[in-house]
Simulated assay, not measured.
Amino acid sequence: MKIVMDARFTRTDFHDGISRYGSSLIEATAKIADVTMLINDERQLQLLPEVPWIKVNSPLSPMELFVSRKVNPLNPDAVFTPLQTMGSWGRKYGLILTLQDLIYYQHPEPPGFLPLPVRVLWRLYHKAYWPQRLLLNRADLVATISWTSKRLIEEFRLTQRPIRIIGNAPQPGKTPRDPVISPEKTLIYMGSFMPYKNVETMLKGMSDLPDFSLHLLSRITPERRTELEALIPQGARVIFHNGVSDQEYDDLVLRATAVVTLSKAEGYGLPLVEAMTLGTPVVVADTEIFREVGGDAASYVPAEDPAAFARAVQALAEPEEWRRRSVASLQRAASYSWERSAQALLSMAEEAAQLHRVRR
């Protein structure tokens, strides 16, 4: 199969969720198929695998409507993009569009790094479902990253196209911790600080965890940090890292008692799988997606209950319970891999190519 994979959502400084997902899937798929990447900035290459590429317009450019003019000469069997906005006019190939999740329909506040006009359109777009339907029905197949997202796409009838799963996965080659060695009394949060992430409830729960420290790893604006610092209970230990390297992230997770999140909405929850891959237990909000990802390995608490959050952490302070959860985490994480995801994409590419030939 000859597959073109859209890498234009790759960042130029450090990976976010979409950026890492696309890069990792490209690297795994290139081992089993003929892959060419689309980029729009050569600085993206520093975060991408060594795979053939061509440079085209930005996905946010008006020229995106005609991007197939650049893709058609590559004669791909299928094109995959990790989002749903890729132009499709005049295409001569099977097209796989991706809807990662439906978070922003419930929480329509756009990411702050987007330009103001894009943020305005983002908010308006997520106030109705019909624009999503118009986008997705241009594809031959629609991909998503979890069964939870697939169910929601079907529930809201967002596409008439078949929906398939191409799951997320942790980075390969990680060495898990020894469950016999007791953890530090630290808790790790990796994620944004948008309101739906519900960091506030974890901060409140720290009032009942005087022996623990909570490490907030992601980059944060000064304004948002000031808001959250005002909520830290007296005597609680909360450390803002404002960004960490991949190695620093692993080092912190390998020593911690747990990785924690009380996010009210996720498309997948990659930090859970990353933690479990290293043998670190997770304490998470009791939501459908976290149940899907964490299975029997995770500890679940009501998202708005800081006392329940504290009790779940305190339970992991018991050595036997922590070791049991650590072993269960490793077993659960073994079910996720980029090799499986690449095979799923290859199957989708074959199906999309066939569907496109039939429609033509």
Rank of each mutant, 00 (worst) to 15 (best):
L47I: 10
G94E: 06
D13V: 13
G167Q: 12
L214S: 03
F113R: 13
Y189G: 00
S341W: 02
G17E: 07
A169F: 09
P176T: 02
G87S: 06
P108E: 07
L124D: 03
D101N: 15
T257D: 00
T201H: 06
Q84A: 15
H15L: 12
R340S: 10
K55G: 02
P233K: 13
A78W: 04
R360W: 14
P108K: 11
F66I: 08
A128K: 11
V120Q: 13
L99N: 12
E50V: 11
A342Q: 06
L231S: 01
D305Y: 04
I289E: 01
D41T: 08
A298C: 01
M194Y: 08
P49D: 06
A349F: 12
W53A: 11
L231C: 01
Y104C: 04
G295A: 05
T144S: 11
T175W: 02
Q132N: 09
E50D: 15
M37P: 03
S68F: 05
T29E: 04
E248W: 04
S23T: 08
L187G: 03
R119V: 09
N168L: 11
G269N: 00
V283S: 01
R360G: 14
A256I: 01
L355R: 15
L214H: 07
W122V: 08
A169G: 10
H107T: 12
A303M: 04
G267C: 10
A308I: 04
M276F: 01
V293S: 01
I188L: 04
V180C: 08
E288V: 14
K150L: 15
P170S: 14
S149R: 05
S146F: 06
T29P: 06
I26Q: 10
N75A: 10
K174Q: 09
I289H: 02
D41F: 12
L209A: 10
P179H: 06
I165M: 15
G87I: 06
